[in-house]
């Protein structure tokens, strides 16, 4: 029982990180019907910048409480990621808004490679350990272990999602975003500045991505310039699982995928009699993705949309 509960907790933690990243994918997709392939790299930049900042603080013997250092790192990382998101949209996607579908997809892949290589030039190819600044207390939760960090990740994720939903549902900007997602031309006629709304969508998604990146780095105790690909792909799977373009769906999909993955990797060895071990963990996301797209392309919460060629 406690192993089961432990896997559920781990799944919830990683799932809420997936959900935060998936929100970035789904927001952009909702507005532009475009998969922002470079989103994973934005997440990676968030993690790398934060680690660098904390290391600089530690290196200069500035002793602050651990969480405060983390906040300082985030304060640096979030604007960097936002700026990246803004620039990516401006350079790679905006000029191609009316081009055939394949074109922005290929530039997106190009941008993601460029960001990866730039990161690897700045920080080198190796793994960066996450600085050991956070308290490591472990709580007993009905026989399963949960750390302060895990609690903090879940709470922060819930707060951020709440803030995002408030912004989308209750503010002027959110209303403009929803209008643009429904019909850009009509929204434009109603006085919405489409270009700035699209920029804002990228920027918001990137900010969430930066926070998620730091969570990934803290949770796995490391970060590296090539981490964006896998985490981005999993988060994209989460977005598809929930129904792409649907914000609640992204959250649901993220948490579901997190739990599937951690239960799967926990029990795979037993289920297959040791034939497949936890080293196949990464396959789950891909399998879920393929199965969802084949059997229910609209996702768990998505509406069936007419095919757009």
């Amino acid at each position: 029982m406690d192993i089961f509960l432990q896997q559920i907790i781990n799944g919830l933690v990683i799932g809420s990180i997936y959900a935060l990243i998936a929100l970035g994918y789904t927001m952009v997709y909702g507005i532009m019907q475009l998969i922002n392939f470079a989103h994973g790299e934005i997440v990676m930049f968030g993690a790398m910048v934060t680690i660098t900042c904390i290391n600089v603080l530690v290196g200069n013997h500035i002793s602050l409480p651990g969480p405060l250092m983390l906040v300082a790192g985030l304060v640096m990382a979030i604007p960097v990621s936002m700026l990246l998101g803004f620039a990516i949209e401006r350079i790679a996607y905006r000029p191609l808004r009316r081009a055939p579908r394949l074109a922005p997809l290929i530039t997106a892949i190009g941008v993601s490679i460029v960001l990866q290589q730039v990161a690897s030039l700045i920080w080198g190819r190796s793994y960066r350990p996450f600085p050991n600044i956070l308290p490591q207390t472990v709580h007993n939760f009905f026989g399963a272990a949960i750390t302060d960090l895990q609690v903090a990740i879940i709470i922060l994720a819930i707060v951020l999602m709440g803030a995002l939903f408030f912004m989308i549902e209750r503010t002027r900007l959110g209303r403009a975003m929803r209008a643009t997602a429904q019909n850009p031309e009509v929204a434009g006629l109603m006085g919405v500045n489409i270009n700035s709304i699209i920029s804002m969508t990228f920027v918001t998604g990137s900010a969430l991505g930066a926070v998620a990146g730091v969570m990934v780095a803290a949770n796995y105790d490391q970060a590296h310039p090539y981490m964006g690909f896998l985490i981005g792909l999993k988060a994209f799977t989460a977005a598809v699982l929930g129904g792409i373009g649907n914000l609640q769906g992204a959250v649901l999909g993220g948490i579901t995928l997190g739990i599937i993955e951690s239960l799967g990797s926990g029990y795979l060895g037993d289920l297959t009699g040791g034939f497949l071990g936890s080293n196949y963990k990464d396959i789950f996301a891909f399998l879920v993705l393929i199965l969802v797209l084949v059997f229910r392309p609209s996702g768990l919460l998505g509406e069936r949309v007419a095919e757009r060629a």
Partner: peptide
Amino acid sequence: TPTLKLRGDYLAIVTLGFGEIIRI
């Protein structure tokens, strides 16, 4: 076979996943 119905960008992601599965 399973990806025939998919649109361009979904297809891209699924084929990417397929490539990774083979490698894993």
